[in-house]
């Protein structure tokens, strides 16, 4: 691996001992899926993100906003149609299959449905060892490392080592998936809706596990989910997506108070009352009606304008650029202003 570059490569002066400051950088990702008759689904249209070492970035959005596609484009599964993805110092787009395979060991993905992510015919110990086996690990400390990984995710090695996925609960399967991902000492973990198929009490266990694991191993994580509270709680920064574009990037702390983009406000206003706070808008302020526009033919200009209460002619004609309104807080909106009442 050449991921740890030289000092000269990095203006910020990190050394080879320290991990690079940027764990992952993606610029201008575009992913389109042809659907025949010359039409294509504009799944992701120019999304950029960066992930500092040890940081967790949450990607929030509803179904069809392209959040999962971004996650998959990061890991080149499939590669984006255009744009760049840098993992540490390695540019992933344009790598040959063998080089990509090597680079990808440093980035692991955890999927939504833990049961279908595991081969039903294999035992837990083989599932966990699959990565090292592919990488030609000699297996001298195989059992010890498997046990260590299982213990790290809160499973008892004695009971689960020889079981198959169907003998485990959904939460346990997700723990096995996390153990698998950790086996190759990744720098970046991409979690695509890792808790949305789990019960509330199990969800809390898995979220805690991800929290402690990333801290313990100094992992950077991209956490993709549709649940505002879940994303807020695990992330350092949150990126909100709508129809393939970024709406707002903001620190997760007090995000329900800071958020200004009309779409983020709509998401917050849609939360059940129990989770909402007095500071969020009542739903009445938001234009409810409209349907989600088709990603085959997204609206011109700002893609949210068809549902936006602030929309004007400017929004239809001109796409709002992502502008910084406060340190670390960027929005793509012509009209929204930072809230004065929030420190």
């Amino acid at each position: 691996m050449t991921a740890n570059g030289t000092v000269a490569d990095k203006p910020d002066g990190t050394t080879a001992e320290n991990p690079p400051q940027r764990a992952l950088t993606a610029e201008n990702l575009v992913v389109e899926f042809p659907v025949g008759r010359g039409q294509k689904v504009h799944a992701v249209s120019g999304v950029s993100l960066e992930l500092a070492a040890g940081e967790t970035l949450g990607i929030l959005g509803e179904s069809g906003c392209g959040k999962s596609t971004v996650g998959r484009a990061l890991i080149q599964l499939p590669p984006p149609d255009s744009g760049t993805v840098r993992l540490g110092d390695v540019e992933l787009t344009g790598l040959g299959p063998e080089e990509l395979r090597e680079a990808r060991a440093r980035m692991q993905i955890i999927m939504q449905d833990p049961v279908s992510a595991l081969n039903p015919r294999r035992r837990v110990k083989d599932l966990v060892w699959e990565g090292p086996a592919i990488w030609g690990h000699d297996g001298s400390d195989k059992d010890a490392r498997i046990d260590e990984a299982l213990r790290a995710v809160g499973l008892d090695p004695e009971t689960v080592r020889d079981r198959r996925p169907h003998e485990l609960s959904g939460g346990q399967c997700q723990r096995v998936c996390i153990a698998r991902a950790l086996m190759l000492d990744p720098h970046v973990l991409i979690c695509d809706e890792p808790v949305s198929s789990l019960d509330v009490s199990v969800q809390a266990q898995i979220l805690n596990l991800l929290e402690t694991t990333t801290r313990r191993y100094g992992l950077s994580m991209v956490f993709i989910a549709h649940d505002v509270s879940v994303v807020k709680n695990i992330s350092d920064r949150v990126m909100v997506m709508y129809l393939g574009r970024t709406c707002e990037v903001l620190p997760s702390d007090n995000m329900h108070l800071r958020a200004v983009h009309p779409y983020t406000r709509l998401l917050l206003a849609s939360l059940p009352e129990a989770q909402r706070s007095a500071h969020t808008d009542s739903a009445a302020e938001v234009k409810q009606a409209a349907e989600l526009p088709s990603p085959l033919d997204p609206p011109s200009g700002c893609r949210f304008r068809t549902r936006c209460p602030l929309a004007t002619d400017l929004c239809a004609g001109e796409e709002p650029p992502l502008r910084e309104i406060a340190p670390g807080h960027r929005i793509a909106c012509h009209h929204a202003e930072p809230r004065k009442d929030i420190p």
Binding site: S201, N208, S229, K232, N233, I234, H256, Q275, S277
Partner: peptide, 24 residues
Amino acid sequence: KALIASIPRLDTPPHTLLPTIEGR
């Protein structure tokens, strides 16, 4: 009580560990 406590909340600081219910 435990079930309600295990829901992530908007108004807690990020990275708060959630109370969980042990066992199945």
